[in-house]
Design a protein around this nucleic acid. Sequence first.
DNA 1: TGTCGTATTTCATTATTTGAAATACAGTTT
DNA 2: AAACTGTATTTCAAATAATGAAATACGACA
Lengths: 253, 253
Amino acid sequence: MSRQPNLTATLAKGLEVMEALADVEEIGLTELARRLDLTPPTLFRILSTLVAEGYALKTESRYRLSLKPWEIGAKAVRRLRLKDLVRPRAERLSQRSAESAHLAVLQGAGVVIIDKVDAAQPVRVDTYVGQRAPVHCSATGKAILAFLPPERVEAILEAPLQRYTERTICDARKLRKELATAKAEGYAVNRGEWRTDVCAIAVPLQDHANEVVASLSLTLPTVRFTDEAIRTSFLPALREAAAAISADLGRTA
Amino acid sequence: MSRQPNLTATLAKGLEVMEALADVEEIGLTELARRLDLTPPTLFRILSTLVAEGYALKTESRYRLSLKPWEIGAKAVRRLRLKDLVRPRAERLSQRSAESAHLAVLQGAGVVIIDKVDAAQPVRVDTYVGQRAPVHCSATGKAILAFLPPERVEAILEAPLQRYTERTICDARKLRKELATAKAEGYAVNRGEWRTDVCAIAVPLQDHANEVVASLSLTLPTVRFTDEAIRTSFLPALREAAAAISADLGRTA
DNA sequence: TGTCGTATTTCATTATTTGAAATACAGTTT
DNA sequence: AAACTGTATTTCAAATAATGAAATACGACA
């Protein structure tokens, strides 16, 4: 049987297994084999290899993911050098606005949170560092898209825009329009487009060459996302933080 | 040629390539092939697969690691649920002591930093979240070992203890003795045993079942690691933080 | 002790990986 | 502009490593 040319099927399978492990606390061989549609011996060899290489842990015939993928990835994150630069500003931002601040970067067809500062409030949105969000219905994603060169935006908008809520913008034309507005205003918002009840507002972070490298956002429950708060609190705080960070990036990079 | 039984060599190779990518900013096919002793076509197929699966990025015939391993690993880290619990205490700890606080867990034959709070001082030790440290010459590692069941300690001490500085304890007998002291005192120290000029002091974090799950440390330049500071500042602050966290863990888990 | 469900091993078959060589491509040099 | 150099990529027959059915080991429970 001929696969797509020049790819190693075995590696792809192993990576899939690793990803599947990430989604469960712990899992047995047979169940995982069923899920991934692999025969037990095949999966057994793959898991054994993952264990031997330190990617998985085995406890009494059950398997779980180790922290090794995270360790490896941390080297890539560290190389971004963004976190250290942003963290103090993000803390101040979160304090000023009383909401959760997120730092996110574009990654493939989505955005990934690489750092966050939780709001000092009991009612807040559940997110985690490392979390992926769709680019077309998150404030962070839209803030980045708005400042990306058109050809890269179009490459991303080629894929169908998945609907998550009734507010998700799934029409590429509409989205392009909104991105233009975001660019003009300097910020993007998300009003329950990904998860109902969750809103966010984000500004882009630009480096020395004026390239968007990330975005900074405040993410909060819809009930607190009032125009008043946006105008008097969120937006000024975000703009100040972004200006300071972008200036730092200009000096650093 | 017969390999060790029941492992998939191709997957192992692919994982090695991924790890190698983590150690460089960006690399070309030929150079990486030389480093890993793979032929260009083989590496080409592996890299193509990694790119296809989103683990690597390709820019003009050069390859780099993506954030995907980190994303996947973040799910495992999140599942530990430690970070959220520890972060506020670690912040206070860092403030009180004016030094950098680290949260680390045992991971294979080493410890990995899963969260940190930088000291509000200009002179501080360069570390990063995701960083691995040897278990036998880090305060975090020793604090964990000291409270682990003997059979697990012995399994770890089987491997030869690598020397990093002239202060590294490479003798298993000596180390066991020090671990006993650490257990009795409730804390472990590292005096330039891994990196000259870097000292640390750590306490274990125990869960409801009194199992060590992680350790909390202060890491600082040797010049500031005085007995006076340890006694009046570091140790009381660490103990208070650890007690609070362990209590939380007891309630949570 | 026996039965069941799962994990692991075996081994002949088969498909996939492999690398030498051919080719394509990009950047320099003549 | 043509030849040269050092990469990246493709091709394809040979070689090897992955495959899965079936046999076996293991562990839990009756």
